[in-house]
Deep mutational scan, measured.
Amino acid sequence: MDETGKELVLALYDYQEKSPREVTMKKGDILTLLNSTNKDSWKVEVKITVNGKTYERQGFVPAAYVKKL
């Protein structure tokens, strides 16, 4: 869990989004878990840094590609 009590997951593999509802992640990324009720895909939040500014983006990733921490 992070400092706000949200559950975290670790990306086990790289994943490139295939639709606007998904998010891209790299192996080793730590993501905030938002919903894990679907056995196939979990909703997560990723933090992306562009030019020194951090943005948050929500979307789905394959459940088999992440592990709860």
Rank of each mutant, 00 (worst) to 15 (best):
R21D: 15
K26S: 08
W42K: 00
K39T: 11
G5D: 13
N51Q: 09
N38D: 14
R21T: 14
N35H: 05
L33I: 03
V50W: 08
D29L: 04
W42R: 00
M25E: 01
K67T: 12
Q16Y: 14
K67R: 12
V9H: 05
L31M: 14
M1A: 13
E22C: 09
T37W: 07
S41C: 15
T54L: 09
T32S: 06
P20W: 08
T24L: 02
A11E: 02
L33R: 01
I30T: 04
E17P: 15
V66S: 00
M1W: 13
K27I: 04
G52T: 03
T49G: 03
V46Q: 12
K18L: 08
L69Y: 07
P62K: 05
I48V: 12
L8A: 05
L33E: 02
G52V: 02
K27R: 10
Y13C: 15
G5F: 13
T37I: 08
L69C: 14
I48F: 11
S36P: 06
N38T: 06
F60P: 00
T4I: 13
Q58Y: 06
I48N: 05
V9C: 14
V44W: 04
S41E: 15
L10Y: 10
N35G: 06
I30A: 01
E22G: 14
G28V: 03
L10G: 00
G52F: 03
Q58A: 09
R21F: 14
I48H: 09
L33Q: 00
G59L: 06
F60K: 01
A63S: 14
V46A: 09
D29G: 01
S41D: 07
S19W: 08
I30V: 11
G59Q: 02
G59W: 06
D29C: 08
V23Q: 02
Y55I: 13
T4G: 14
V66W: 02
Y65G: 05
V61S: 00
Y65K: 07
K43R: 09
K68L: 14
E22K: 03
K39W: 07
T4N: 13
E56T: 15
K18Y: 05
L10D: 01
E22A: 06
A11R: 02
K43Y: 15
V66A: 02
V50N: 06
A64V: 09
T4E: 13
T4A: 12
V23H: 01
G5A: 14
L12S: 01
A11K: 02
S41A: 11
L8R: 10
L10P: 01
T49A: 07
D40L: 11
W42E: 00
K47G: 05
K18H: 07
V50Y: 09
G28S: 01
K47D: 02
D14P: 04
E22H: 04
D29Y: 05
D14L: 05
M25V: 10
L69V: 11
Q58M: 07
K27S: 06
I48G: 04
S36Q: 09
E56R: 15
K18R: 13
L31G: 03
V23L: 11
E56A: 15
D40R: 10
K68Y: 09
V46F: 07
Y55T: 11
D14S: 06
V44G: 00
T49R: 09
T37D: 15
T54G: 05
Q16N: 14
R57K: 12
K6G: 11
